[in-house]
Design a protein around this nucleic acid. Structure first.
Lengths: 195, 195
DNA sequence: TTGACAAGCGGACAACTGTCCAGTATTATT
DNA sequence: AATAATACTGGACAGTTGTCCGCTTGTCAA
């Protein structure tokens, strides 16, 4: 059989996945199905993407990049730390709203046990975490908020709106995207900032 | 074959699971393996427990009950709302510390998609959520904190220390159980209470 | 007591993830 | 150009979860 280049194969996989995900939803399709549809073997599939999470991660690469650019923009603006944090929150929640299934898939695949990279060590997560942490630190040094453990706080902030709970709040509890943002500000951001 | 009563079978499954989990860790053993060791068929297994999560839930029943009794005790104590919330947090984190693998298994098995009960609709979760919500409401009516959406806040508080992030903070970030409690108080509880 | 009917059992099965390896295509060597 | 070394492929395979169904066991009415 004619051998294709690495890139050709990756591209074929990614395009096939995108098409199938569009049609059936990413959570409904299997690695096997993708491989078969793309006309490659199971082994080739897994050599390129260790699991569905990694595949989704690559599929989302573009979008993550866009998100991080937005966030970088926000940080550059001449606003208060509080305003920046709120803007990032809005951006983050909206991103979740648009791509829950994909993010959930990535989340699920990256188990803590297997030493394959955890979700928390992925570049997009680290980036978001770092930016929140830095803003919190800035808020502390400028006496806008009382000292807190910023690393911990950034992690738990992100965890508090993880894909699973977000879906529950949206679908079962019927909160809107805007509700989630507003309540988060009310409960987590406002109280920190001493008025 | 001699037919056993429902209870006998359930007991056999639970005991087998406990023994195997003790030996290999709950995350390493499969439903098939449990069924085989218990000397029953796959079908019987799944008729009694829809998945590993449900099995773990039943296995943890006793412990959940104990936890909820502790929490009930805490609520009854003649302390301030803030003190009660902190005591519950300590109890909750300690519970997580002791039973992470089981709770993670329950968490993972209860997917949002399949209409099988979600984790968030399980009795133990609902109970914990309700108690936190009520304490927050009490704090609002007694003017200890500014008004917030208590339902949302209780959900996100619990989500912020979910098993996955907890394991990450403990194992990778090397935070201690006490660190997690202390930082949570610092970042989420203290700021709410107006001094 | 017996026959019919309901309930429950357990293994076969289908679908999935992830690994492995025999064989084929490509590249390097002489 | 021939051959040896290397890299890559795809499908077979093992181990999972979860479902299904033929058969067995117990129950109840006549």
């Amino acid at each position: 059989m004619q051998r294709r280049s690495k890139d050709t194969i990756s591209l074929a996989i990614l395009q096939t996945t995108e098409a199938l995900a569009e049609k059936y939803g990413i959570e409904k399709i299997s690695m096997h199905q993708i491989a078969q549809t793309a006309g490659i073997g199971q082994g080739t599939m897994y050599r390129r993407f260790v699991n569905k999470g990694a595949l989704c991660m690559e599929l989302m690469h573009e979008k993550f990049h866009l998100l991080s650019e937005h966030v970088a923009q926000i940080v550059k603006q001449p606003n208060t730390v509080e305003e920046k944090l709120i803007a990032i929150l809005e951006e983050h929640v909206h991103f979740l709203e648009c791509h829950v299934s994909f993010i959930e898939t990535i989340h699920d695949a990256a188990t803590c046990e297997g030493k394959k990279q955890t979700f928390y060590e992925s570049q997009p997560y680290q980036l978001l975490h770092q930016i929140i942490r830095r803003l919190l630190e800035e808020a502390i040094t400028t006496k806008k908020i009382k000292p807190i453990q910023t690393d911990f706080t950034a992690h738990t902030w992100i965890a508090s709106i993880n894909p699973k709970i977000y879906l529950y709040l949206r679908k079962e509890k019927r909160y809107s995207e805007q509700d989630v943002v507003a309540y988060f500000i009310q409960s987590f951001i406002n109280p920190l900032f001493i008025k």
